[in-house]
Design a protein around this nucleic acid. Structure first.
Lengths: 237, 237
DNA sequence: TCTGTCAATATCGTATGCAATATAAGACAA
DNA sequence: TTGTCTTATATTGCATACGATATTGACAGA
């Protein structure tokens, strides 16, 4: 059994808004809904057998998560963050995750430590088998750490940020670049367990930055409509 | 003129939801609405001459900001964060503001530097005159730095966090404790302008932590009903 | 052929009505 | 007096209707 960590005990049967919300989030993160796609309230309501009220609220939440853009009197669109926004998101992520592991360092009981090691183990094993699974597990790892902090706001922010990062990587990342590097995760876990909060913080900060650069976020230039038009024009005989 | 920095050019005449939203936020932060107070949609809609739809949406936004708590099928209440949540919020704030000034260090043009010095000047001058004004200016200072980063998400998070901090301090802080310390601000500005990103980061991190401790967030114990009852019982003859 | 104006359409912003749910109050028995 | 059951009330959850707004396409004029 690989992902006991992901089970979220839904005591409440999940409100309709929530259902639509998570379904749309999934679809966007899996790129089944392409960035820039229109998301009319009517269409969503119809698709889920609900009214626009539900669709509207779900879209509102997705907008605060940064996954959709809400243009007043125009409608909702799947977000299409610029490369610069993407970099900004990773900056915040690095800062939050640094603080997170610093706080965690030396405050992990043996049971939790075992779980963390197990997660890294699973990641390593899956790294060569299934890309998509490995990426999912890597995300789980970061979110699990956030949960351990016992800081609800930190957890919320990190959940949101991880979503945004996934979207940015889906847009700008090259294939396979999203791997989180199980080895880096292992080093971080070891630093945390050892109580080395400075080392853990630095490792995590560097880790996040490297994920960003591996995704080519540092090198690829902003898509410039003008230059593309020039290219296209040049190809016309 | 003290606060040109606060002018937000509202190109759009501000939607009704927004109006209710900011009005309620003000009221909560000024403690005109006490923590724990009920906020029925009907009542709010009536008060603002709008329908429940508007009130509902405003409450939803305030909930994501952490200023109101939304209990399903029960209603909305002014948030009443625990002391522990309050500490967690300051942890995040320290992390974000550290990253913020590190990014800013050495990237400030002379015009902006002048503005920053002016803000610190104003704070110093008002520090002895008007408490409430000084506190407001201090908040402006932090938010202005966030705006300078050009990172929309960072700006949003920090706005949200500053609100939450205000609420926490209103609940748990002792009077006058919220002063941000204009001298600390001056040191930070100087480090930023000098391009000393390590120093600026450390100063800011410490500064936020000290604001938290000055507010007694580090010392005061959680209110424990049991112990209070014991005290009361002991006083009974 | 190009550009400006206008109508048609699609979609959102808002109000309101009805059903569902949770709390609170009251009655009653132990 | 206390515990439990029932009923009443307050309030939200959700759907729908109507007016407001932006975009699209057609058409007239240059």
């Amino acid at each position: 059994m690989l992902s006991t960590h992901t089970t979220r005990e839904t005591d409440r049967p999940m409100t309709r808004t929530e259902r639509v919300h998570v379904a749309l989030r999934m679809a966007i993160l899996e790129q089944r809904l392409a960035p820039g796609a229109r998301l009319p309230e009517d269409m969503i309501g119809e698709a889920f057998g609900s009214s626009r009220t539900i669709a509207r609220e779900a879209l509102g939440r997705l907008a605060t998560e940064g996954l959709v853009e809400l243009k007043p009197n125009r409608g909702a669109f799947v977000a299409n963050p610029t490369l610069e926004e993407g970099r900004g998101i990773f900056v915040i992520r690095a800062a939050l995750e640094r603080a997170m592991v610093r706080q965690l360092a030396g405050r992990i009981d043996v049971e939790t430590a075992r779980t963390l090691h197990q997660m890294v183990e699973d990641e390593t094993r899956l790294a060569e088998k299934s890309d998509v699974e490995a990426i999912r597990l890597a995300g789980e790892f970061h979110l699990y750490l956030a949960r351990l902090c016992g800081n609800p706001l930190l957890e919320r922010y990190l959940t949101e940020i991880v979503s945004r990062c996934s979207l940015v990587m889906a847009i700008y990342g090259r294939p396979h670049s999203a791997d989180c590097g199980a080895r880096e995760h292992r080093e971080i876990v070891e630093a945390i367990v050892a109580g080395d909060f400075v080392g853990a913080g630095n490792l995590m900060e560097r880790h996040v930055e490297e994920v960003a650069t591996r995704a080519q976020l540092g090198t690829r230039a902003e898509v410039d409509v003008r230059s593309i038009l020039a290219e296209v024009a040049a190809q016309v005989p």
